[in-house]
């Protein structure tokens, strides 16, 4: 199942829509894993779209079978990278001489969308003008509020900070600037009393 309906939450927690083709001369699509499916759906809405589009795709395991189909959409430019980090220089290069009117579409995991959103807003596009669609894993990027380290792909609550080793609980409070949710020490008032980790949304 690649679509997941996140339960309603607090105002800082991002919500995601479904991608719609918008007017504009240039289109940038950034996806990982099952996010490719959202691009396939988007392309089906608008026959002329892909010829104006630059697709940046990170298959990361679960997307392996989707690469061929994405390539088959014949985007104006297509790139496939081994990781998000590897794609960042390219994303920055593309944004650096993009023009107003560029449409940005982000799809896949929350971590990918959040980080790519950050690049696009830093380049001058307001976040509300960037479209997002969640597909695939519900793992979260978490910031440890204590040591500031980011732990990727967190799927349980609580979890152990990959940097300082504190046991952190998973909040829905989200920072667009950090592209991360907040993790806070769970046993500060009762050291050592750490509940067993439970899978998110289970």
């Amino acid at each position: 199942m690649s679509k997941f309906q996140f339960p309603e939450s607090i105002a800082s927690r991002p919500t995601y829509g479904s991608l719609k083709s918008r007017p504009g001369k240039a289109h940038l699509m950034i996806a990982d894993a099952e996010g490719a499916e959202a691009i396939l759906d988007l392309a089906a809405q608008d026959a002329g779209l892909m010829a104006k589009s630059h697709v940046i795709y990170i298959p990361s395991g679960s997307g392996a079978g989707l690469s061929e189909r994405l390539r088959g959409l014949k985007p104006a430019q297509y790139y496939e990278g081994p990781s998000y980090a590897a794609a960042v220089p390219r994303i920055r290069r593309v944004l650096s001489d993009a023009h107003m009117g560029l449409q940005v579409y982000l799809c896949g995991t929350e971590g990918l969308m959040g980080q790519a959103m950050n690049e696009a807003t830093a380049a001058g596009i307001p976040h509300s003008a960037i479209q997002t669609e969640h597909r695939g894993s519900i793992a979260r990027r978490m910031q440890c509020v204590h040591c500031k380290g980011i732990t990727e792909n967190v799927t349980t609550d609580p979890f152990v900070c990959a940097h300082c080793g504190l046991n952190l609980f998973v909040r829905d409070h989200y920072s667009r600037r950090l592209a991360a949710f907040q993790g806070v020490c769970i046993d500060a008032e009762d050291p050592g009393n750490v509940p067993n980790p439970v899978e998110l949304y289970k």
Binding site: A11, H173, S175, R176
Partner: peptide, 12 residues
């Protein structure tokens, strides 16, 4: 953590 948020987001 909150820098860059809007009024509703930081009060979330």
């Amino acid at each position: 953590f909150d820098i860059g948020m809007n009024f509703f987001e930081w009060h979330a």
